[in-house]
Amino acid sequence: MGLLDKEFSDGNIVIAKVDDLMNWARLSSIWQLGFGLACCAIEMMATSASHYDFDRFGVIPRNTPRQADAIIISGTVTLKMATRIKRLYEQMPDPKYIISMGSCANCGGPYWEHGYHVLKGIDRVIPVDVYVPGCPPRPEALLEGLLKLQEKIRNESLRKKIA
């Protein structure tokens, strides 16, 4: 599993597969794009704050998509915003991951019928790796989503991207 589970057989040398090393590095420092949309963003900020401490999983906000690995779609995506999100996503370097947080980003949420301005699910614009249900999800739920994403990255291969 983890890189450091391998035996220290010879002095300071650790033996690991390149795949495992790369995946371990990637999943241990998922830098997210500093980006929030609605009330879910408040929960996301609470997750970043000291009580839930996103940073213990290596998640820190970056202020430019060029330096970000993941984007958490935290809230209602309006049609106006969807065009901007698509551009931000395209500006991120590969490998890039997306967590869709909350009912609005998953499927339109309470705006599903009469929300003339709401995109009914961010997966109509960009590919989503993990969906976190809730309205809004509690910080624990977002952390669970992050762990799911880490699990996905852990099983990636250099030859084939899964997430």
């Binding site: 049609l79 499927c107 599903w112 019928e113 995109l119 009914k120 109509r124 614009v125």
Partner: peptide
């Protein structure tokens, strides 16, 4: 549709 995005649920 708006800019290629489907609008209804």
């Amino acid at each position: 549709f708006y800019k290629g995005m489907k609008v209804p649920y």
